[in-house]
Design a protein around this nucleic acid. Sequence first.
DNA 1: TCTGGGGTCCTAGGACCC
DNA 2: TCTGGGGTCCTAGGACCC
Length: 377
Amino acid sequence: MDAFFASVEQAVNPRLRGKPLIVGSRGKRNHTVVAACSYEAKAYGIKSGMPTFMALGLCPCAEFIPADSAKYMYTSEEIFKMIKDYSWQAETASIDEFYLDVSICGLGKAITIAQDIKQKIKSRFSITCSIGIAPSKIIAKIAAKSKKPDGLVVLEEKDIMSFLKDLPVEKVPGIGESTKKRLNYMSIFTCAELARVETGFLIERFGKIGLWLSEVSRGIDNSEVAYLNEGETQPKSIGHSYTLERQIYNRGLILAWIRMLSEMVAYRLRKDCLQAHVTHLYISGSLGFLNRQKKFSSPTYDPQDIYLRCQVILESFDKKQIHCRALGVSASGLVPAQPFHLFDQDEKRERLISARDKINERFGEWTIYPASISEVK
DNA sequence: TCTGGGGTCCTAGGACCC
DNA sequence: TCTGGGGTCCTAGGACCC
């Protein structure tokens, strides 16, 4: 999709069309970054990932809308339902990117399918997308990105090398800031230059990534598009984090935030019918970035357990006073949830948690919550 | 106003087991 | 006499993506 979040907002709200629009990742304008921006905003030099205050500096008249992820998720799912009718091999790569393997159809048919998809998306959602058609996933992705918005780029096997020739290495998805710097330091700036380097040398320098770099610079990517229904993909981790307005020192307040995040993580685990063995706690502040994880023998989706586990991890941090600016709680080592009725108390606790979920689902989240989080809610 | 929040994958070292 | 080798699991941290 092109400028996905911003396009969705402009589609549902005619007042925003034709205007520079910034979709922020959180409710408040300050203290957040640009999650997406309209093409009108891009014209001012605004980019996603940029702090909002900086974006507003470039274009003070830009409209600011807080992100509404439920809306984007719904649109994304509806688009995928449309796309998967064209092939058994259809994959969701992210909220606004999909892969479709239509290689059996031949190139002519592939182009027709692409035009068809573009037209359907436009008529149903009033948003545009860019499509790349190529022999591999990574080349198709680069092709799609090369002509936005509303593009359709076809790259046949014979065109790939000339297409990649002058492409800066950082345009390849998977080559980020750090790898770019290392490559540039070796005087490697384009894919053609990368392709000339010996594979062995790249492996020596970059390990497993080296082999991938070597292949991708030659347009080689043998990864397959996933088959539909192929392993209902279960998340590997579930987490929430929060950046505070300013540093806090008060241990009680830090614990209240941890409790709040534990509640959010545990709720999502229960929604997905999962339990977690591993709890992660991270805190950034004056001590730098602290990130610790701990595996526990019994899996849980009980917010109280996650909170207590975080406290165990917190103990392992420097005992000195912690100054905290941002904090996060996440859960991994996920397994399907099993009701555990080993003791009466467990069963009572389960009933309590599930009753609370029902109340909050019916009357709104945080209708009932632990008193200990009242100061941060 | 002074840089978010949600994830995935990979690597390396230490602990531990047989 | 004076401590191997192979494997797995756990943890921390880096890089990357949208």
